[in-house]
Design a binder for these strands. Structure first.
Lengths: 129, 129
DNA sequence: CTGTATCCTTTCGGATACTG
DNA sequence: CAGTATCCGAAAGGATACAG
């Protein structure tokens, strides 16, 4: 094979392969609503319905919830299942692909949770000058 | 104090402490230009000048480079040093705070680098229906 | 070289009202 | 319950010209 597994060079993202596709996907997986959605779903056991997600993600509008779900489904990150009941029930589930993404997203969120106060302080100091 | 170190619960982000500040910071550190900037800087040894960064980040406009640098400096994630020379020289450096962020950002970028083709395929299939 | 300033188009995203 | 449709203001961001 000649080439072992990718060294995970960030140059792969910053200039090779398909910079535009990669950049666009990064805006998707770096988006706050996508992150909260995926992580909330993970926290809810990997599967939940619309209203559960709505309640689990503070501040999200119905519109953004719907839109984000649609995008993530299109990207293969969420599977959607509709039950023919009244009242309607729809369940969303993480896919194998998104399960592999959870850890990376969690890493970013953890950093924010640990460091946002420091950043706030830095901003206050900057603004004071 | 009385309070030991935070358990890193993602609920901390999704609903407690200061949801708005946390959400806003997440959009900052999840932003593609912030990510490329921090990671490029890391790849360049943690310190680089304006033009180097411009070249290292394909597709970024001068405006976005300047803006992102300003934001990151304000957030305490980048230190800026100006040299009184002609022609002007300005160097940017990662801070202790941003160095702790590199790994988390890299995790997200690595995921994208590894999985973007799968996502592309999922999109194609979705659009075909 | 390292920016700033301005213009202008595109996209984001909340509010609200309506539907099967 | 789980959406869709529409409106509209706000923000993102490229292009371009200019400046210290």
């Amino acid at each position: 094979m000649g080439k072992a597994k990718q060294p995970l060079d960030s140059a792969l993202v910053c200039g090779h392969e398909d910079p535009i596709a990669v950049r666009e996907l990064l805006t998707r997986v770096g988006d706050k609503w996508s992150i909260f959605l995926i992580l909330s779903l993970a926290k809810l056991g990997g599967r939940a319905r619309f209203s559960q997600l709505d309640r689990a993600i503070p501040g999200i509008s119905q519109r953004m919830l719907t839109l984000t779900l649609t995008h993530l489904e299109r990207d293969g990150l969420i599977a959607r299942e509709v039950f023919a009941e009244i009242p309607p029930r729809v369940e969303y589930e993480l896919t194998a692909l998104s399960r592999s993404l959870v850890e990376a997203m969690q890493g970013l969120v953890d950093w924010v949770a640990q460091n946002w106060k420091q950043v706030s302080a830095a901003r206050a100091e900057y603004d004071a000058r």
